[in-house]
Amino acid sequence: MMNESRPHPTRIEELLEQDVVVSSFDFGEFHMKLDESIKRLEVRARLIHRAALVSLAIFIICVVTVPLVISLKHIWVLRVWSGCGLVALFTAFVFAAIDHYKYRPVLKRKERDSILAAIDQLQFEVTELKEKLK
């Protein structure tokens, strides 16, 4: 029967090397495209995040300014205002849901990167201060 132990990694590597598609594939270009796609995804994630915040801000503005709109005593203005507020609330929910379920993990990297950058900056400043104190 066939030997079912795991094949030797070197032998497998040779086998992969001899595969037409694997040997002719441009991995450098693939890495570049993958990086670009990830960056595009991050840009989209930030846009969705901002859109959720802007929608929420519009809703809050609509609610806060209701007394002012009532004082105008034009029923159609109040209706339009209420419509704007409801649409803003709805879009805020939609964008927040997309942001939470799809894009939040993507933005996590940016948060992590900015924390690391801040730590680096702090370390640099501490080193500079130490040198000045000397």
Partner: peptide
């Protein structure tokens, strides 16, 4: 990447854009 490409090739055959599949 190389193993996944090989595996995809084995499933899909040769008439595919493997850059898109891998991506």
């Amino acid at each position: 990447e190389r193993r996944i490409l090989y595996y995809s090739h084995r499933i899909l055959g040769s008439d595919f854009d493997f850059a898109d599949v891998l991506q």
